[in-house]
Each structure stands twice: as C-alpha cells, then as structure tokens.
Amino acid sequence: MTVSRGIASVAEVTGLTQDTLRWYEREGLIPRVGRSSDGRRRYDEASVRIIQLIVRLRRTGMPVAEIRRFLAMYEEGAASHGRRMALLAEHRVRVSLQLAELRADLAAVDDKIDHYRRLIANGRDCDDTPITDSAILERQGRPA
C-alpha cells in the first residue's frame, strides 16, 4: 500500500507553506503531484523526499534553472543517473566553497568577539586607552 499525504502534512514535513508548495508546482520545481478523486493534492513518499531535496538545494543556493534541469532528468528515470550525479557534484563544489568562506567569516567574527572581551576585561577603549567614563564601565559590569 502506498502512503499518500495531503498538502498540509507535506507543508509541515518540508517546512514550506502550502502556498509555496503550490507555487513550486506551478513553476515546475517539484514533480507532478497526484490528485485524489475529489481533486486534492496527494503526495507519495517519493514526492516528499524529492521536495525535501529541492528545499535543501534551494537553501544551499542552487539556481532555479538547475533545479528544473535536475527535475527534467529525474523524470527520465535511471537513464539520467549519471547526469544528475554530475549536476549535484558541481553544486557540491559550490557549497563546499561557500562553507569555507563561511568558516573564515565566522572565525573573523569570533576574533572580533574575543577582541571586545579583552577590551572589556581590561577596561580599554578601541584605541587601547583606558576607559574613564563611569557609565560605560558600569554597563560593562566593571567598577567605576
């Protein structure tokens, strides 16, 4: 027996709104969704998994045009496995570069936080002069 879900359930599982799911469908960003006899969308588990992948691809910056290409290949079935893998491998390289940049950016933020901790701990201003303003010292939890 194939389990199917309604749009509200899929919205909850994927983190997308129902309107976003409908928009993704209209824009061809998710595979065709089956309908029940009363016309309501019914998502099978394979559809939910592909939607979850698409959410991740979007979140990692894959362009919409590439997602459309990926889905067109997905519709081709096994014949496109190699091409899908190549597209994902190219995207992985971009994501890895983004992660490296983010790690470097995070390190710079951490360095700046440490810098301010040292200034506060030593009662110093940015130009390394002592802070003499008692209001500033009190806000920093230091005796005036």
Rank of each mutant, 00 (worst) to 15 (best):
G39R: 07
T60Q: 08
Y43V: 12
L29R: 05
Y24E: 02
V33Y: 01
P63E: 15
G39P: 07
S36R: 14
R49M: 09
R59W: 01
R26K: 04
R35F: 01
R59H: 11
G61F: 12
M62K: 03
S47N: 07
P63F: 12
G34S: 14
R32W: 03
P63I: 10
P31E: 09
V33L: 09
R58H: 04
T60A: 15
I30M: 10
R42V: 05
R42D: 05
G28W: 07
L21N: 02
E25G: 07
I30A: 01
R35I: 04
G28E: 05
V55H: 06
D44Q: 04
R58C: 12
I50F: 06
L21A: 05
R40M: 09
E45I: 01
G39Y: 03
Y43I: 06
S36G: 14
V55G: 08
I51Y: 00
V55N: 06
V55D: 04
V48H: 04
P63G: 13
R58Q: 12
R26T: 00
R32F: 01
R42T: 11
S47W: 01
R42C: 00
G28M: 07
R26Y: 04
I50N: 11
I51C: 06
I51G: 05
L29P: 10
V64A: 10
S47K: 04
R56D: 10
G34R: 11
E45M: 05
S47E: 05
R59L: 15
Y43A: 06
W23P: 00
